[in-house]
Write a protein that binds this DNA or RNA. Structure first.
Lengths: 207, 207
DNA sequence: GAACATAGCGAGTCATCACTCGCTATGTAA
DNA sequence: TTACATAGCGAGTGATGACTCGCTATGTTC
């Protein structure tokens, strides 16, 4: 029944490491940073505590592997979504971003950013990932057709502003959500942005 | 030397409660939610652990008193700042809001909002405060001269959007700050907003 | 197949947490 | 002043945390 197809050491290793990282991401999202314990991660990954520490020197190492996994997956997903758009459309862009900020996996990222503020060890090691995150967002902004119509500093400010707004919205909505209003507001905002001087040059851009 | 001017029971009570609440706010800001322990709060407040539990039934009760203290102080401060403006000015408004979101005391609020996402007990009790917070922001928006020139739903969307953006910026900046760029971006944004169609009617409003 | 290396296990260990309890200190009421 | 109530103390207590260690299981090398 339980076919154990004789995996190599490398396969076993990679498999359990992946299971641990996935479990850590899931736990961060569901229980938050403080309650993401090595015991809980191990339980979800289907390994023992000792097994976990065979592959990671400390809880923090697991956490950082999870952080980088989230970062990589989020950008891959967003780039894929952008590529699937037939024509550049500001509204679609914002909606795509919004879906990314509200994805369960992204909650893990928020947990870590907030925890890092008051945890020097975490902060020191998360900073490079946060820097990369920031850089990638700006780079994606530069690939948008919009970029041709706006000076770079203003483009960057607008892109970061929208990302920050969606981050703030996602974070605040977890405690006091307005399920109906929130979607309406996003659409309203897209109309306001699209109708303002900001984008009228760009939104008149041909496909 | 140590003049003990015979305080009444009520005075002693209020005094230590205030000290505990202040210590809790400070600790939340400096150490984060998870490391805001009753022992640390008591130490900073200058009372024993037993003394703390004389006035609060649980850690959560202390935390919620701190949350409401922060909320009240933040709105009082912001309203005061708004009142001190001679003429309505969008830039000043945003700068005032930004100062509020980056005040050390506001970090305690963020800690609680984020912790509440994964802590059902905290969430249940924080929700009414978050709702009030939300309501007060919108009410303040309605007192702005801007309100006369925009339909209410759009005004609310814009106000919330700006608040969310500053929240997001404040939260993300703690891990990966760009001390110089951030101030520039805010000013840039104010110019962009002021120059867009959004506000041109309102920013032409006479003092 | 023998000798070795790596993967995985789970019962400890020590620290820290929220909270309790019996006590003393101080204010209040008669 | 006496009797009572509230404020404040700090050494427990039981639960839970990250991490260790000696062990077994499974691949790998010759």
């Amino acid at each position: 029944m339980t076919a154990t197809p004789r995996r190599t050491q490398a396969e076993r290793r990679e498999g359990t490491i992946a299971a641990i990282v996935d479990a850590a991401v899931e736990t961060l999202g569901e229980l938050g940073y403080a309650r993401t314990t090595t015991a809980e991660i191990a339980r979800r990954a289907g390994v023992s505590q000792g097994g976990l520490f065979r592959h990671f020197d400390s809880r923090l190492d697991v956490i950082l592997a999870a952080a980088d996994g989230v970062r990589a997956r989020q950008f891959a997903g967003f780039r894929e979504g952008l590529g699937a758009l037939e024509t550049f459309d500001l509204g679609e862009c914002v909606r795509l971003l919004r879906r990314a900020t509200r994805a369960p996996i992204n909650a893990a990222w928020y947990e870590l950013i907030i925890a890092a503020r008051t945890d020097p060890d975490l902060r020191e090691r998360l900073e490079p990932l946060a820097a990369r995150y920031h850089r990638e967002i700006i780079e994606i902004g530069h690939t948008l057709p919009l970029a041709a119509h706006l000076p770079t500093p203003e483009l960057d400010t607008i892109v970061l502003g929208i990302v920050h707004m969606l981050d703030g919205e996602a974070l605040m909505a977890t405690v006091h959500p307005h399920p109906e209003q929130e979607d309406v507001r996003v659409e309203q905002l897209v109309r306001i942005l699209g109708g303002g001087t900001l984008f009228d040059r760009a939104s008149a851009d041909p496909s």
